[in-house]
Amino acid sequence: MLEARLEQANLLKKVVDAIKDLVQDCNFDCNDSGIALQAMDNSHVALVSMMLKSESFSPFRCDRNIALGINLGSLTKVLRCAQNEDILTLKAEDAPDVVNLVFESAETDRISEYDIKLMDIDQEHLGIPETEYAATITMPSAEFQRICRDLSALSESVSIECSKEGVKFNCQGDIGSGSIHLRSHTNVDKPELNVEIDLTEPVSLTFSLKYLVNFCKASGLSNQVKLCLSNEVPLLVEYALSNNSYLRFYLAPKIGD
Protein backbone atom coordinates (compact mmCIF):
# COMPACT_ATOMS: atom_id res chain seq x y z
CA MET A 1 0.00 0.00 0.00
CA LEU A 2 0.89 3.65 -0.39
CA GLU A 3 0.81 6.16 2.41
CA ALA A 4 2.48 9.52 1.79
CA ARG A 5 2.09 12.50 4.06
CA LEU A 6 2.95 16.01 2.90
CA GLU A 7 3.43 18.78 5.47
CA GLN A 8 1.70 21.25 3.19
CA ALA A 9 -0.97 20.53 0.61
CA ASN A 10 0.31 23.62 -1.18
CA LEU A 11 3.19 21.73 -2.80
CA LEU A 12 0.95 19.26 -4.61
CA LYS A 13 -1.56 21.99 -5.44
CA LYS A 14 1.15 24.05 -7.13
CA VAL A 15 2.64 21.09 -9.01
CA VAL A 16 -0.73 20.00 -10.36
CA ASP A 17 -1.65 23.57 -11.23
CA ALA A 18 1.59 23.93 -13.17
CA ILE A 19 1.05 20.87 -15.36
CA LYS A 20 -2.72 20.46 -15.70
CA ASP A 21 -2.98 22.55 -18.86
CA LEU A 22 -0.22 20.54 -20.52
CA VAL A 23 -1.27 17.00 -19.64
CA GLN A 24 -4.72 15.73 -18.69
CA ASP A 25 -4.59 12.07 -17.68
CA CYS A 26 -1.42 10.65 -16.23
CA ASN A 27 0.02 7.94 -14.06
CA PHE A 28 1.56 8.82 -10.74
CA ASP A 29 4.14 6.05 -10.43
CA CYS A 30 4.72 5.25 -6.79
CA ASN A 31 7.55 3.14 -5.44
CA ASP A 32 9.85 3.21 -2.42
CA SER A 33 11.88 6.10 -3.85
CA GLY A 34 8.87 8.40 -4.13
CA ILE A 35 6.16 9.50 -6.55
CA ALA A 36 7.08 10.14 -10.18
CA LEU A 37 5.15 11.32 -13.20
CA GLN A 38 6.16 11.47 -16.83
CA ALA A 39 3.78 12.60 -19.56
CA MET A 40 3.82 14.20 -22.97
CA ASP A 41 1.39 16.86 -24.09
CA ASN A 42 -1.14 15.84 -26.75
CA SER A 43 0.91 17.22 -29.62
CA HIS A 44 4.08 15.41 -28.44
CA VAL A 45 6.11 18.60 -28.36
CA ALA A 46 6.68 18.86 -24.61
CA LEU A 47 7.36 16.37 -21.84
CA VAL A 48 6.67 16.81 -18.14
CA SER A 49 8.80 14.91 -15.66
CA MET A 50 8.02 15.24 -11.97
CA MET A 51 9.79 13.53 -9.09
CA LEU A 52 8.63 13.87 -5.52
CA LYS A 53 11.23 11.94 -3.53
CA SER A 54 10.19 9.91 -0.54
CA GLU A 55 12.19 12.38 1.62
CA SER A 56 9.70 15.10 0.66
CA PHE A 57 7.08 13.14 2.60
CA SER A 58 7.01 12.26 6.25
CA PRO A 59 6.21 9.47 6.66
CA PHE A 60 6.41 7.77 3.26
CA ARG A 61 5.50 4.16 2.79
CA CYS A 62 5.12 2.30 -0.49
CA ASP A 63 5.63 -1.48 -0.38
CA ARG A 64 5.33 -2.19 -4.07
CA ASN A 65 5.12 -0.32 -7.36
CA ILE A 66 1.72 1.26 -7.84
CA ALA A 67 0.62 3.32 -10.85
CA LEU A 68 -2.17 5.72 -9.94
CA GLY A 69 -3.93 6.77 -13.15
CA ILE A 70 -5.42 10.15 -12.35
CA ASN A 71 -7.28 12.77 -14.35
CA LEU A 72 -5.63 16.05 -13.37
CA GLY A 73 -8.90 17.95 -13.72
CA SER A 74 -10.43 15.69 -11.09
CA LEU A 75 -7.36 16.00 -8.88
CA THR A 76 -7.55 19.80 -9.20
CA LYS A 77 -11.19 19.78 -8.06
CA VAL A 78 -10.29 17.78 -4.97
CA LEU A 79 -7.13 19.74 -4.18
CA ARG A 80 -9.22 22.93 -4.22
CA CYS A 81 -10.94 21.47 -1.15
CA ALA A 82 -7.64 21.64 0.75
CA GLN A 83 -6.26 24.74 2.42
CA ASN A 84 -2.70 25.55 1.42
CA GLU A 85 -1.38 24.82 4.91
CA ASP A 86 -3.33 21.60 5.42
CA ILE A 87 -1.40 18.41 6.00
CA LEU A 88 -2.12 16.16 3.02
CA THR A 89 -1.98 12.38 3.11
CA LEU A 90 -2.26 10.26 -0.04
CA LYS A 91 -3.32 6.68 0.42
CA ALA A 92 -3.91 3.76 -1.94
CA GLU A 93 -4.17 0.00 -1.73
CA ASP A 94 -1.89 -2.28 -3.72
CA ALA A 95 -4.34 -2.78 -6.60
CA PRO A 96 -6.41 0.34 -6.09
CA ASP A 97 -9.66 1.55 -7.66
CA VAL A 98 -9.35 4.88 -5.90
CA VAL A 99 -6.76 7.15 -4.38
CA ASN A 100 -7.66 8.57 -1.00
CA LEU A 101 -6.71 12.11 0.01
CA VAL A 102 -6.96 13.30 3.59
CA PHE A 103 -6.59 16.99 4.47
CA GLU A 104 -5.92 17.87 8.09
CA SER A 105 -5.84 21.37 9.46
CA ALA A 106 -3.06 21.85 11.97
CA GLU A 107 -4.98 24.73 13.57
CA THR A 108 -8.42 23.19 13.89
CA ASP A 109 -9.53 19.61 14.32
CA ARG A 110 -11.03 19.54 10.85
CA ILE A 111 -10.27 16.43 8.84
CA SER A 112 -11.64 16.06 5.33
CA GLU A 113 -11.33 13.02 3.17
CA TYR A 114 -11.84 12.47 -0.56
CA ASP A 115 -11.56 9.52 -2.93
CA ILE A 116 -10.77 9.96 -6.60
CA LYS A 117 -11.62 7.15 -8.99
CA LEU A 118 -8.56 5.89 -10.81
CA MET A 119 -8.23 5.34 -14.55
CA ASP A 120 -6.36 2.73 -16.53
CA ILE A 121 -3.84 4.77 -18.45
CA ASP A 122 -1.67 3.06 -21.00
CA GLN A 123 1.25 5.43 -20.92
CA GLU A 124 4.51 5.08 -22.76
CA HIS A 125 7.62 6.04 -20.87
CA LEU A 126 10.36 7.78 -22.76
CA GLY A 127 14.03 7.30 -22.05
CA ILE A 128 15.63 10.68 -21.45
CA PRO A 129 19.32 10.45 -22.33
CA GLU A 130 21.90 11.84 -19.92
CA THR A 131 23.06 15.04 -21.59
CA GLU A 132 26.07 17.26 -21.00
CA TYR A 133 24.44 20.53 -21.92
CA ALA A 134 26.41 23.21 -23.78
CA ALA A 135 24.80 25.97 -21.74
CA THR A 136 23.11 26.06 -18.36
CA ILE A 137 21.39 29.23 -17.25
CA THR A 138 20.13 29.61 -13.69
CA MET A 139 17.95 32.66 -13.22
CA PRO A 140 15.01 34.00 -11.21
CA SER A 141 11.89 32.09 -12.20
CA ALA A 142 9.87 35.33 -12.14
CA GLU A 143 12.31 36.90 -14.61
CA PHE A 144 12.00 33.96 -16.99
CA GLN A 145 8.22 34.16 -16.69
CA ARG A 146 8.27 37.86 -17.49
CA ILE A 147 10.49 37.36 -20.54
CA CYS A 148 8.26 34.61 -21.92
CA ARG A 149 5.10 36.58 -21.27
CA ASP A 150 6.48 39.81 -22.76
CA LEU A 151 7.82 38.18 -25.90
CA SER A 152 4.71 36.07 -26.42
CA ALA A 153 2.81 39.33 -27.02
CA LEU A 154 4.93 39.87 -30.12
CA SER A 155 5.67 36.45 -31.51
CA GLU A 156 4.99 32.73 -31.42
CA SER A 157 8.66 31.81 -31.08
CA VAL A 158 11.72 32.90 -29.19
CA SER A 159 15.32 32.26 -30.04
CA ILE A 160 17.58 31.72 -27.05
CA GLU A 161 21.19 32.52 -27.80
CA CYS A 162 23.84 31.84 -25.25
CA SER A 163 27.39 33.08 -25.72
CA LYS A 164 30.27 34.55 -23.72
CA GLU A 165 28.32 37.83 -23.86
CA GLY A 166 25.46 36.33 -21.88
CA VAL A 167 22.05 35.05 -22.87
CA LYS A 168 19.78 36.75 -25.37
CA PHE A 169 16.09 36.06 -25.81
CA ASN A 170 15.00 37.29 -29.24
CA CYS A 171 11.70 37.36 -31.04
CA GLN A 172 10.36 38.66 -34.31
CA GLY A 173 6.70 39.18 -35.05
CA ASP A 174 4.29 41.03 -37.31
CA ILE A 175 4.40 44.25 -35.32
CA GLY A 176 8.15 44.25 -34.79
CA SER A 177 10.78 42.53 -32.73
CA GLY A 178 12.03 42.32 -29.17
CA SER A 179 15.09 41.15 -27.34
CA ILE A 180 16.20 40.78 -23.75
CA HIS A 181 19.83 40.37 -22.86
CA LEU A 182 20.95 39.02 -19.51
CA ARG A 183 24.47 38.69 -18.16
CA SER A 184 25.76 36.77 -15.18
CA HIS A 185 24.82 38.64 -12.06
CA THR A 186 25.48 38.05 -8.39
CA ASN A 187 23.40 39.71 -5.70
CA VAL A 188 24.90 38.91 -2.30
CA ASP A 189 21.88 40.20 -0.36
CA LYS A 190 19.31 38.58 -2.60
CA PRO A 191 20.80 35.40 -4.08
CA GLU A 192 17.39 34.53 -5.51
CA LEU A 193 18.05 37.32 -8.05
CA ASN A 194 21.29 35.76 -9.27
CA VAL A 195 21.80 34.93 -12.90
CA GLU A 196 24.40 32.27 -13.52
CA ILE A 197 25.50 31.26 -17.00
CA ASP A 198 27.58 28.15 -17.39
CA LEU A 199 28.76 27.83 -20.96
CA THR A 200 30.96 25.27 -22.67
CA GLU A 201 29.89 26.08 -26.20
CA PRO A 202 27.73 28.82 -27.80
CA VAL A 203 24.13 27.75 -28.38
CA SER A 204 21.28 29.14 -30.41
CA LEU A 205 17.87 27.47 -30.45
CA THR A 206 14.29 28.44 -31.24
CA PHE A 207 11.29 27.43 -29.15
CA SER A 208 7.54 27.93 -29.10
CA LEU A 209 6.60 30.61 -26.58
CA LYS A 210 3.18 29.07 -26.00
CA TYR A 211 4.82 26.10 -24.26
CA LEU A 212 7.33 28.19 -22.34
CA VAL A 213 4.55 30.42 -21.00
CA ASN A 214 2.81 27.23 -19.89
CA PHE A 215 5.92 25.90 -18.11
CA CYS A 216 6.21 29.20 -16.25
CA LYS A 217 3.04 28.33 -14.32
CA ALA A 218 5.50 26.45 -12.12
CA SER A 219 7.25 29.70 -11.11
CA GLY A 220 5.62 29.68 -7.68
CA LEU A 221 7.38 26.42 -6.83
CA SER A 222 10.90 27.82 -6.85
CA ASN A 223 12.62 31.23 -6.84
CA GLN A 224 15.05 30.06 -9.46
CA VAL A 225 14.70 28.14 -12.69
CA LYS A 226 17.39 26.30 -14.61
CA LEU A 227 17.47 26.27 -18.42
CA CYS A 228 19.71 23.67 -20.05
CA LEU A 229 20.47 23.94 -23.75
CA SER A 230 22.47 22.12 -26.38
CA ASN A 231 22.16 22.64 -30.10
CA GLU A 232 19.44 20.54 -31.71
CA VAL A 233 18.19 18.85 -28.54
CA PRO A 234 15.15 19.61 -26.37
CA LEU A 235 15.40 22.43 -23.87
CA LEU A 236 15.24 21.39 -20.23
CA VAL A 237 13.45 23.79 -17.88
CA GLU A 238 13.87 22.70 -14.27
CA TYR A 239 12.21 23.89 -11.08
CA ALA A 240 14.09 22.37 -8.15
CA LEU A 241 12.08 21.48 -5.05
CA SER A 242 13.25 20.56 -1.55
CA ASN A 243 14.81 17.14 -0.89
CA ASN A 244 16.04 16.73 -4.50
CA SER A 245 12.48 16.60 -5.75
CA TYR A 246 11.88 18.44 -9.00
CA LEU A 247 9.51 19.47 -11.75
CA ARG A 248 11.11 19.35 -15.19
CA PHE A 249 9.80 20.28 -18.60
CA TYR A 250 11.41 19.31 -21.88
CA LEU A 251 10.57 21.20 -25.06
CA ALA A 252 11.48 20.09 -28.57
CA PRO A 253 13.09 22.89 -30.58
CA LYS A 254 11.95 24.42 -33.83
CA ILE A 255 14.50 23.58 -36.46
CA GLY A 256 14.69 25.37 -39.78
CA ASP A 257 15.02 24.58 -43.42
Binding site: M40, S43, H44, V45, A46, L47, E124, H125, L126, G127, I128, P129, S157, T206, S208, V233, P234, Y250, L251, A252, P253, K254, I255, G256, D257
Partner: peptide, 14 residues
Protein backbone atom coordinates in the same frame (compact mmCIF):
# COMPACT_ATOMS: atom_id res chain seq x y z
CA UNK B 1 10.86 28.98 -41.70
CA UNK B 2 11.47 26.69 -38.76
CA UNK B 3 9.43 23.60 -38.04
CA UNK B 4 8.35 22.41 -34.64
CA UNK B 5 9.98 19.06 -33.92
CA UNK B 6 8.35 16.31 -31.89
CA UNK B 7 9.84 15.26 -28.58
CA UNK B 8 9.64 11.70 -29.93
CA UNK B 9 12.36 12.59 -32.41
CA UNK B 10 14.76 12.96 -29.49
CA UNK B 11 13.59 10.64 -26.71
CA UNK B 12 12.92 6.99 -27.51
CA UNK B 13 10.03 4.96 -26.14
CA UNK B 14 11.22 2.55 -23.48
Amino acid sequence: GKNQKSILGFFQKK
